[in-house]
């Protein structure tokens, strides 16, 4: 029952296929790939397609893409060269800057040394002057001190003589001025 049905369906299928294929019997047998009647059609349209693709590629697409690629590699190498150039310039500028900095530093050091030397000279002169003044003052002061000391010794002697004379007189003696002077002088000196 089922088999009969199957066979009928198959037959129907084949008939339908035959109607559809209309004139080329081979297609019903199996693979449409082996249906020789469709070959001229496929080959013709394939050749048309290939020619169109080839034309589009060789006339438009490939020149354009290769131009873009060449352009890009040109731009890239140009940019790289420019970058290298800039790098070199930057390095030069850095070197110049370093040199200027070093020069300035050396200059500054020189100026500082000069100023220091000048100041030292001034300082030395002022010190020498002050020393001289101080020693002059010291000498003067010493002289005055000596004078005062001498004056003081004399005054002590005179006061001692007077006091001694007065003491002798007060004790009821008779003061011999010369003896007193000699005694006091000896004492004071001693």
């Amino acid at each position: 029952m089922a088999n009969e049905h199957d066979a009928a369906a198959m037959a129907g299928d084949v008939a339908h296929g035959a109607a559809e294929a209309a004139g080329h019997a081979a297609s019903n047998a199996g693979m449409p790939q082996l249906d020789l009647t469709s070959f001229p059609n496929q080959i013709f349209w394939l050749l048309v397609t290939l020619v169109v693709i080839y034309w589009v590629l060789s006339r438009i697409a490939l020149p354009r893409i290769s131009a873009v690629l060449a352009d890009r590699s040109g731009t890239i190498s140009g940019d790289l060269a420019a970058a290298e150039d800039y790098k070199l310039k930057a390095r030069e500028a850095e070197a110049a800057y370093e040199k200027a900095l070093a020069d300035a530093r050396a200059q500054a050091q020189k100026i500082v040394a000069e100023a220091r030397a000048e100041i030292q000279k001034d300082l030395d002169a002022a010190t020498a002057k002050a020393d001289a003044e101080i020693s002059a003052r010291a000498t003067e002061s010493e002289a005055r001190i000596a004078e005062i000391r001498a004056g003081a010794v004399e005054a002590v002697e005179a006061v001692a003589k007077d006091t001694a004379g007065e003491l002798v007189a007060a004790l009821g003696g008779k003061a011999d001025a010369t003896a007193i002077a000699a005694a006091v002088g000896a004492r004071v000196k001693g």
Binding site: A22, G23, H24, M31, S38, P40, N41, W45
Partner: peptide
Amino acid sequence: MDQFMVKPLFGDGPIHWYTPTNVT
């Protein structure tokens, strides 16, 4: 295998070399 069948785009006629088909 039906998907591989070469069919005319317009109508049901025979396939000549110039017929526009689904291949075209």
